[in-house]
């Protein structure tokens, strides 16, 4: 019995069973990261809400939040969130191009994968260089 049939019989979810993929091929790896970063972004909105709500709470709370966000740990979280956001945005565009039936040949998928990673990394670097220098 295949894994899929087994799951259907149990009445449980039937996709996407990571075990059946080679998780470290570029194609599947980028796809898995899209999902991991999507979930991470949602968790990361806690940080966003903390930031914006602290401003609503007043100057004191805002300074306290900025102290935390300006610490090395705060930087780490914000850096992670920014890269996840740019990656997920670029890959999201790639996803929606596929939805229109474009670029579905294996060669295109590899090519757009490299382009996407380059764009996401480039945007992250540019954003941080600007953010730290302005």
């Amino acid at each position: 019995m295949t894994l899929l049939e087994e799951r259907i019989n149990r009445g449980g979810p039937v996709s996407p069973h990571l075990q059946v993929y080679d998780m470290f091929k570029l194609t599947s790896f980028l796809s898995i990261i899209h999902r991991v970063f999507g979930a991470g972004l949602l968790v990361g909105t806690l940080l966003f809400t903390y930031w914006i709500a602290s401003a609503a709470a007043g100057p004191q709370a805002y300074d306290c939040a900025m102290n935390f966000l300006g610490s090395w740990f705060g930087y780490l979280l914000v850096f992670g969130w920014s890269f996840a956001l740019f990656y997920h945005m670029c890959n999201g565009v790639r996803h929606m191009l596929w939805d229109t039936g474009r670029m579905l040949a294996l060669k295109d998928i590899y090519q757009s994968g490299y382009v996407m990673v380059a764009c996401a990394s480039g945007l992250t670097v540019v954003a941080w260089v600007l953010g730290l220098s302005l």
Partner: peptide, 16 residues
């Protein structure tokens, strides 16, 4: 992203 860049590290007065 551009908004956050423009207020990164800003004090309360600037941000509000």
């Amino acid at each position: 992203a551009s908004a956050v860049i423009s207020v990164a590290g800003a004090d309360y007065a600037t941000f509000s």
